[in-house]
Each structure stands twice: as structure tokens, then as C-alpha cells.
Design a protein around this nucleic acid. Structure first.
Length: 420
DNA sequence: TCTGGGGTCCTAGGACCC
DNA sequence: TCTGGGGTCCTAGGACCC
């Protein structure tokens, strides 16, 4: 049996945790650059604010309804996520952290007479220990557990738990869930299924297996099995090492200045380097990507991208930056205003497996030691306390974040004060 | 003024090998 | 109508997730 524990409106709940006066107020959390809504409290959802709504389209609703607005504060959300996951880990033998706000719990060895009671225990423990509200769905497969979680939120809001204990309850849930709301069904597949007469998840279970296999590949076949109660998605108790790592941001302001693009590219490359070293990987290649603002069709549009292979797989920031800047110079074109630069490092392999080129003259060990010290300092003293020269100091491409809350749990200077 | 960022998996098709 | 057969590796593109 699987449980899916999902934090309710996670980012909004994190903000509310440190500002209890927001208890019944509508809260919206914005994406990077304060661009669009990525989390909403129930009250904000009730006002009709949709996921992904651009900030400038919400201004009226926000002002009229006294909505509390936040820039995203990933340091805070990441730390609270860790605390929630650690709490869950103490309650069950094994769990799979699926995303920043969700975990699958393995209940196969739990000896509860009624698993819904366990669900309530989980929910109350997290609420009590961390203060974040969660919902729990329990069912015989991952896909059904996801569905049960959603069903709990829709139909058993107060309890916040749904245990699909028998086929009758599973059927009830399958009948209720529309195809587009099934985990693994996006817009394209939802259209396909609707065109073929499926309205609900129940309808999908009645399609021929062969249809799922041929029209939706093995992904569809797995899904079909999962909906019919046959577990077909593996556990991933240990997070696998990443195969690609990407750092990209949109600019607060469009720019055609290559020196600003270079500064941004250097910084994003440095961020990729740090992530590589943290998982003890080296990259075989690096991709640089630039794009103009496609939301402005009246401006000339251009997207450029290039991949360069390293002489030797690397995670050394300086070396990576030199390739990134070389790539940027190749794809850069004058006469355009750029919105975004992205760096992806590809073909990641374990650090201890690299074969150095016979022409390699670098003292990799020494450089790496320096970088590891830099990483440590940056973690302790705050991001980018120490950096490479090409990263610049001005941050001319700075993002916008006008509604940022404190890093209450990770920075002693930003801790909550009870009284001044 | 203003529309996020970071990932994964699967398949088809081409290059290349013996 | 026929063009060998069987295999691997890589990449691009499309689908999905939070």
C-alpha cells in the first residue's frame, strides 16, 4: 500500500507559518522576477486566481481583496521541506521524496487495523511538529495514491485523508476523477483520451490495454495498470544522481548588452559547477542558450543555443565559464533584446570515472580543493560571498523580488522577533 | 513595467559497427 | 520485386511532472 503525502498550498503555507495574522487571508506566491502566481492559499483560489496568472493581470484582484503577495523564497521553502520530510521519515520504514512538497510512503509493513487512522496520525504529527498542513491519500498504487490525495482535498477537506480501502471506494474515486486530473495525463493525452470517449479515470480503465500501449507508449500502459490496481511504477528510495543540471533565469529587464549576458552566463555556470561538485559529478559538455522575449511579438525575435564538449569532463568553475563565454560569443547577435540566458551541463558522470586528456595540463586536484573551500564559505556566509572575477559584483541582470520574506529558519539575522 | 525554473522518460531516426 | 541482418549509441523532439 502506498501513501502520498502532499503539503497543502506549500509555499503559501510556509509564508503563513511565520505570519499567523495571515491565517484567513488570501496569499499568493510569485515566481522568480515576481512574474506569475505559482502558489495560492485556498482563499486566493476562491478569488479565482489561477496557477500561472501573470502578476500584472492580478493587480485589481489583489488590491480589492487585500491579498498578501510574496516573492518566492526557496531558501525558506527548501528548509521547511527538509523538516517535513524528516518528520515523515520517522513515521514509516521507507519513503520516497518525490518533490519539494510531496512524498510517497511505503506502508507495506505497517500493521494498522485501519490505515486511514495512520493517515490522520501522519497529518496531525506534521501539523504539530512543523506547522504545515498536509493531505494524505492511501491506495494500492502510486497513481491511485496520488488520486486519493486529490480526492481527500476535494471531498474530505476537513479530514484531509482518503484511504481507498476497497474496490468500491476506488471506483468511487475513479468515477469522480476527470482524465485531465490523472497523474501522468497532460493536455495532449487528455485531448486524445476525450476524443476516444473517455471522460473519467474509470473510462480509461475500460479502454483496451493495446490502445494505451500504441497511442501512449509504455507510459500509457503503465498508467493503465496502475489505475487498475497493479503497481507498475518503481520505488526510488534513493534519489538518483542527476543526468543534466540547468541554471537559467529571465532578466528583470531586457538587455542587448553582451557584457551583461556574459556576467549572467558566468554566474549560472558557477551555480551549475557548485551543483555538480555537490553530487560528485563531472560534465562532458555544456550548453548555452539565449532567447528574446517571445511575449513581445513586435520586437525582433531570436533564440540561440550551442553545445560545446569539454576537452576533459569537468566540474571546475573557471574552466566551465571559459567554455560558456566562448559559446555565448558564437550565438550572440547584435540588434536583439534578450530576456533569458540558460546554462545546462550535460552528460554527467561520476567524478571518479573521468579520464583526463593526454594534453591536460591542469592541476585538477588543486583547483577542486579551492572550489570546495569556496562552496563551503558560500554555504556558510551566503551565496556568492566568494566568486570568480567574470561573475562580476554588480549583478546588473538582477532579478526582481519585491515581496521577499525573511529566511526565518536559516539566517540568524532574519529570525522571527517576538517583540522589538 | 509586468507571463518561472528545473527536471524526467520515451521514441524515431541516423550514424556507425561487424 | 528486389536491395543482408543485427546490434549500439546518440540526438532531437514530444510528452509529462512539480
Amino acid at each position: 500500500m502506498y501513501a502520498l503525502v502532499d503539503c497543502n498550498n506549500f509555499y503559501a503555507s510556509c509564508e503563513r507559518l511565520f505570519q499567523p495574522k495571515l491565517a484567513n487571508r488570501a496569499i499568493v506566491v510569485l515566481s522568480n522576477n515576481d512574474g506569475c502566481a505559482i502558489a495560492r492559499s485556498d482563499e486566493a483560489k476562491a478569488l479565482g486566481i489561477e496557477m500561472g496568472t501573470p502578476a500584472f493581470l492580478m493587480e485589481d484582484i489583489i488590491n480589492k481583496n487585500n491579498v498578501a503577495v510574496f516573492s518566492s523564497n526557496y531558501t525558506l521553502y527548501g528548509d521547511l521541506s527538509d523538516r517535513v520530510m524528516k518528520t515523515l521519515a520517522r513515521l514509516v520504514p521507507r519513503l520516497e521524496v518525490y518533490s519539494i512538497d510531496e512524498s510517497f510512503l511505503d506502508l507495506s509493513d505497517m500493521h494498522y487495523t485501519d490505515l486511514s487512522k495512520l493517515g490522520v496520525d501522519i497529518k496531525e504529527t506534521v501539523r504539530r511538529n512543523i506547522g504545515i498542513p498536509v493531505s494524505v491519500g492511501i491506495a494500492p498504487t502510486k497513481t491511485l495514491a496520488k488520486m486519493a490525495n486529490r480526492y481527500a482535498k476535494k471531498k474530505y477537506k476537513q479530514l484531509g485523508v482518503f484511504y481507498a480501502a476497497n474496490q468500491q471506494l476506488i471506483d468511487e474515486m475513479l468515477d469522480y476523477t476527470e482524465v485531465g486530473d490523472i497523474w501522468g495525463i497532460g493536455r495532449q493525452y487528455a485531448n486524445l483520451l476525450q476524443r476516444n470517449g473517455c471522460k473519467t479515470a474509470m473510462d480509461v480503465t475500460k479502454l483496451p490495454e493495446d490502445f494505451m500501449r500504441t497511442k501512449m507508449t509504455v507510459v500509457g500502459q503503465r498508467l493503465w495498470n496502475e489505475l487498475r490496481g497493479v503497481p507498475s511504477i518503481e520505488w526510488e528510495f534513493e534519489p538518483p544522481a542527476k543526468k543534466n543540471i540547468c541554471t537559467s533565469r529571465s532578466f528583470g529587464k531586457l538587455t542587448g548588452d553582451i557584457s551583461i549576458l556574459k556576467e549572467a552566463a558566468s554566474n549560472y555556470t558557477a551555480a551549475c559547477g557548485e551543483k555538480l561538485r555537490r553530487q560528485n559529478s563531472c560534465a562532458k559538455a555544456i550548453n548555452v542558450y539565449v532567447t528574446t522575449n517571445y511575449h513581445k511579438p513586435d520586437l525582433p525575435q531570436y533564440t540561440g543555443s550551442i553545445s560545446l564538449e569539454f576537452e576533459t569532463p569537468t566540474n571546475l568553475t573557471g574552466e566551465m565559464i571559459s567554455y560558456a563565454l566562448k559559446g555565448l560569443e558564437i550565438i550572440y547577435k547584435e540588434g536583439y533584446l534578450f530576456k533569458k540566458v540558460g546554462i545546462t551541463v550535460l552528460g554527467l558522470i561520476p567524478e571518479n570515472q573521468i579520464q583526463t586528456s593526454m594534453f591536460d595540463v591542469k592541476d585538477r586536484k588543486k583547483e577542486k580543493d579551492v572550489l570546495l573551500s569556496m562552496d563551503k564559505i558560500n554555504r556558510l556566509m551566503g551565496k556568492d560571498s566568494v566568486r570568480m572575477a567574470s561573475q562580476g559584483f554588480q549583478r546588473r541582470y538582477k532579478l526582481r523580488a519585491e515581496h521577499l520574506s525573511n529566511k526565518y529558519t536559516t539566517n540568524i539575522n532574519e529570525i522571527l522577533k517576538v517583540k522589538n
